[in-house]
Simulated scan of single mutants.
Amino acid sequence: MDIKESKFKEEVNNFVMNLQKFLPKKKEIIILQTDRTDLTKLSDIHAEAKNVFPKCFIGAKLVILKEIMDKAKLVQNYNFGKPKDSYKCYSHFIHKEMQSKNIDDGLVIDLAGSATATYRESLEDNLEIRMTTKIRNLISSEVEAVLENTGDRSVSSFSMNMKDVDPKTVSLITQWTYKVKPEFSVGMELRVKPLSTLLSTLSVSSRYERPSFALSSTVSNMGFQLCLFKQFSSDLRMATILNENKAGTVMSVALHKSYENSSELKVFVDSQRCGGFTIEKDVLFSEPNSETRVVRLMASTMIDRQRRVRFGFGFQLDF
């Protein structure tokens, strides 16, 4: 009987070990230092404050990221419920603001039916050209060309964007930021559609920052936004956003707390009596050969304007 029990335990352990081999390995965090770390692009002028807010979702979600080659990544995103964020308490007034970046240069393939190819090349005099092509399905696509110049105290860019190979959707976007003082920056964006009847969009932004907080604002013909970010400690951050547009004025507050057990908590509430939070935790599995496998668990809860409480749960695997 003892022999059978020991053999059974050994078989179970081998089975569990084989399952762990299918999990992604824990990756070391590498921070790359650039020559101009004090410059902020216009699309990132509110980045710290808006990253504090949770991205609540409803239903079940599974995200798998797999590097195929050096410059190719496969994205598998399965959603059971609503595919996108169910509620957002702030608007985006700046082109490409807070856009998720999978890889800087290469190909991203989504099994949902889309592909994104990015190519960039550095030119002389701090100039950089970047080409991005997105194919969402057989009839939907997007092409963008960006020319960016980085100076000692400024970052400027000019881009052309077209969707679905339709000349009427061509957009010309100019972005520019200038560091007036080490702690104060100003920026401007002009968006024009030459072949469309829509009016041009002009926005002016400013940013004041210190090591522990940042205050930024954007004024455009779409509305007004004021963002405040405060870093209390290395594991506790808070942000406040005042957003005003045609739909009205909304004030939102969010809190981001990191814990030592590889988990993160993000909570937000706003003046429309909406709120929600997300919890993310890395579950580590150790192997005898000292390798560590990891699975990221995600849980979400949201209260909407009708005071309905909704839940979400998911996994994220990054190979």
Rank of each mutant, 00 (worst) to 15 (best):
D2A: 03
S6T: 05
E10G: 11
V12M: 15
V16D: 13
L19C: 14
F22W: 10
P24V: 10
K25C: 03
K27C: 05
L39I: 09
T40V: 15
S43E: 12
H46Y: 04
H46S: 15
A47F: 04
A49M: 13
V52R: 07
G59I: 14
A60F: 14
V75W: 08
Q76K: 02
Q76F: 04
G81L: 14
D85F: 05
D85K: 04
Y87A: 08
C89A: 11
Y90T: 05
Y90A: 05
K96L: 08
E97T: 07
K101A: 02
D105H: 01
L107I: 08
V108K: 01
V108S: 07
A115W: 00
T116H: 06
T116G: 00
Y119K: 02
E124M: 12
N126T: 09
R130M: 06
R130F: 01
R130Y: 02
I135F: 07
I135A: 12
L138R: 15
I139W: 09
S141W: 10
E142G: 11
V143D: 12
T150E: 11
T150Y: 04
R153S: 12
S159K: 06
S159F: 01
M162S: 10
K163Y: 02
D166S: 14
D166H: 11
K179L: 12
K181Q: 15
V186C: 07
V192P: 00
L202A: 04
S203A: 12
S205F: 06
E209G: 13
R210E: 15
S212Q: 13
S212D: 14
F213L: 12
A214K: 13
G223N: 10
K230D: 13
N243D: 13
E244V: 13
N245Y: 01
T249Y: 11
T249P: 04
M251G: 14
L255K: 07
L255R: 08
S258N: 06
N261K: 02
S262F: 04
S263C: 00
S263L: 01
S263D: 01
S271P: 07
R273F: 11
R273A: 09
C274I: 05
G276F: 06
D282Q: 06
V283Q: 08
L284D: 00
S286Q: 11
E291M: 12
V295G: 03
M298I: 03
M298L: 13
D304S: 11
